[in-house]
Amino acid sequence: MADNATLHYISSFFLVGIPGLQDFHCWIGIPVCLLFSLTLLGNSIIIIPIKLESSLHQPMYFFLCMLAMNDLALASSIAPKMLGIFWLDAHWIDFDICLAQLYFIHTFCIIESALLVAMAFDRYVAICIPLHYTTLLTTTMVIKMGLATVGRAIFLVLPGPFLIRRLPYYTKYVINHAYCEHMAVVKLASANTHVNRTYGISVALSVIILDLGLLATSYLKILQVVFRLSSQHAHSKVLGTCAAHVCTILVSYTPALFSFLTHRIGKKVPPSVHIIFASLYLLVPPTSIPWYMVSRPRRFVTE
């Protein structure tokens, strides 16, 4: 065994797909392809009109456009390789490409979470302090918020691939997953991975606690305003502007939290169940964005 810990005897990994369900891979590929196609089509339908229609150049639509572009990138970083595994038996992936996929997946996930917070802030301003909406959420402020979400994700995820590259990989090369996920790759290392595990859980917890805390605060403030309204119609009107966003949050966070917890404490959860949920939280939310825009009345953007 070599002394140089940076030397990797393994140049590529073997992605199993979904362990225990290999005989059904060709069928599993059908919903994956459908979700990917809906993501490409639906989010393109959002991006193009917002870009071309000047009347849609408003904060909430800018956030929707950012979210749609991020979802396109997120789905594109995982779905093609999954389809290659399910339909073409293309299980092998180069070590560096695996690290790149890992990096982009986690970066886009953190960006997605931050954009949901930004959209919740938009709803808070529009409903709780509507008179200040146009002064607070200017185009410049929206751009700054967008850059902040990207900058945070890049800063938090960037150490991950470098920490993995310092680990030696001598014999283990089979990843029991459908894509390169941080913990799934770290577990194969032939060395102590305490630093990597600590880093991974620290990033995950910091993002989850901060973003969920901000989301909860925004909607608690919104609910306080709603309960002060005397009209039942006003209640329905305000809640209707937030319902789709809340559904998007639930769709995004529920499978993500399940995947995070089963990786660390769910020892009895079958690997196939874990991987299915881990794939769903990357593939399903991007398809929900078009429904978000359709179900959200345009007139509530600035009210």
Rank of each mutant, 00 (worst) to 15 (best):
L7S: 11
V186D: 15
T302C: 04
S12L: 11
T302A: 09
L136S: 08
P286D: 06
V186Q: 15
K172F: 05
T217W: 07
F14V: 14
P285E: 10
V32S: 04
H274G: 13
I275Q: 12
V174D: 06
S76T: 07
H25D: 15
N176I: 04
D122G: 02
A243Y: 10
F86D: 05
L52K: 09
M60I: 12
L38E: 02
Y292Q: 07
L116Y: 03
L56F: 15
Y170A: 12
T149M: 14
V284I: 11
P290Q: 02
L188A: 01
I127E: 01
T171N: 07
S44D: 00
E303L: 03
W92M: 10
Y9V: 07
A216K: 11
S190M: 08
C128R: 07
T39F: 00
A216D: 04
F104A: 10
I265R: 02
T302K: 05
K144H: 06
A2F: 09
D23K: 07
D71T: 10
C33P: 03
E112N: 07
M141L: 12
S295K: 05
P290V: 00
I47R: 01
W92Q: 11
F95N: 03
C26G: 04
L282W: 01
V246H: 10
V16N: 14
L35P: 01
V246L: 13
H91F: 04
F108C: 13
L38F: 09
R152S: 07
M119T: 10
I249M: 11
I28F: 13
I265G: 03
L56V: 15
C128K: 06
P80Q: 07
L215N: 00
H182F: 15
I143L: 10
L250G: 03
P290L: 01
G213R: 00
K237N: 11
F162A: 08
H263N: 02
G213A: 00
H25E: 15
A100D: 08
F121Q: 04
L83R: 02
P255H: 07
M141K: 09
M60Q: 09
V16R: 15
I45A: 07
L257T: 03
P159T: 03
Y124S: 03
I97N: 08
T217A: 04
K237G: 10
G266H: 11
P80Y: 07
L163F: 13
T138A: 03
I110G: 02
S272F: 14
F277G: 04
